[in-house]
């Protein structure tokens, strides 16, 4: 096991600000604080070589968790270890075995050519020469860095910069890499290149990845396992397939009719008409209660169907439902 988080909790003190002129002056002298739980009693374990999606809405506590795992925040309670190292007790020791990639900010040196940043990182991490050359070559090939490796970082496109950032984070062969929105703002081709790189290094080098993102396509394409947190608490920890099975029992049928569908009624259990627009009707149905063919037969009883599509709900829709309905539907089987 490479990462172990046990009852990880982080409380923040935030200044209670008073409004208005009098309040602003009062703030200068009296300070009252609110306590907020950013992360509440979160436990999980990751095996080496796992590629886990760590997801949750904005402000859920994702980055607070990551900050504790990277050693730049001390938990208020609970503990965690990264390959046996307690991050905040040995920040530098931990730093040597982890890598971090932020989609929103670069860790490359802005006014230096990419290769100079790499050289600096070689010195910072004390990477032996042959290993450095070896890794640099491997990443240059995988990420096509050749064409822009001598360009100052500020002149790179976002896609090129992210490829550079990935190489930079991996040169010292970290055991664990934390990714924070690594594909944000990238075009489809660049996204695919990054995903391919993650999947590949995970497979061939056994790098453990913790992927924090709002792009559930990343998660769906890369991860077998996801951990969902919201309001600081863990809601779900298990496979994507299981969550789809458990919460994605619904299917959406869209039918184009020959007539306007304004007064079409569907009287079958487990179905809901989601929308009627002109000749197109959209129906959500629970596949455990009604079969698709039954629904189509029912529809064709009252009108003619020109076209029918049935869609499996996207992970995104399921996750949205989980965020919106909160803990309740999940307490039943939140773990695997």
């Amino acid at each position: 096991m490479i990462i172990r988080a046990e009852h990880l909790t982080k409380q923040f003190k935030s200044l209670r600000r008073k409004d208005g002129v009098v309040g602003t002056l009062a703030n200068l002298f009296s300070r009252e604080y609110d306590l907020k739980d950013a992360v509440k009693d979160v436990s999980f374990e990751l095996e080496a070589g796992e590629l886990v999606g760590y997801i949750g809405p904005n402000g859920a506590g994702k980055s607070t968790t990551i900050k504790m795992l990277t050693g730049i925040l001390v938990p208020s309670a609970g503990s965690c270890t990264v390959d046996g190292v307690v991050p905040w007790l040995d920040r530098k020791g931990n730093a040597r075995q982890i890598g971090v990639v932020f989609g929103q900010r670069t860790q490359l040196y802005w006014d230096l050519p990419l290769i100079e940043s790499f050289r600096l990182l070689r010195a910072i991490y004390g990477i032996p020469h042959d290993r450095y050359e070896q890794n640099l070559k491997a990443f240059t090939d995988l990420l096509d860095l050749d064409e822009f490796i001598r360009t100052p970082v500020r002149q790179l496109s976002l896609g090129q910069r992210m490829r550079g950032d990935f190489a930079a984070a991996m040169l010292h062969e970290p055991k664990v890499v934390f990714l924070d929105e690594p594909t944000i703002g990238l075009d489809v081709v660049a996204k695919e290149a990054i995903r391919e790189f993650i999947a590949r290094t995970n497979r061939t080098r056994g790098t453990t990845y913790v992927l924090t993102t709002h792009d559930l396509n990343d998660v769906e394409k890369l991860c077998d396992r996801i951990i969902i947190i919201d309001h600081g608490s863990k809601l779900y920890d298990g496979s994507i397939d299981a969550i789809k099975e458990r919460y994605g029992g619904k299917r959406v049928l869209t039918a184009d009719l020959t007539v306007a569908c304004a007064d079409i009624e569907v009287r079958l259990p487990g179905t809901t008409v989601v929308s009627r627009e002109g000749h197109r009707i959209t129906i959500e149905f629970d596949r455990s209660r009604v079969r698709a063919d039954e629904l189509i037969v029912e529809l064709s009883r009252t009108c003619e169907l020109k076209d029918v599509t049935i869609a499996e709900p996207e992970l995104e829709a399921i996750i949205r439902q989980i965020y919106q309905s909160g803990l309740e539907p999940l307490t039943a089987g939140a773990t695997t």
Binding site: I72, I98, Y125
Partner: peptide
């Protein structure tokens, strides 16, 4: 807040 990145390095 970019000091956090420096804290993530072994320096």
């Amino acid at each position: 807040g970019t000091i956090a990145i420096d804290f993530m390095r072994p320096i």
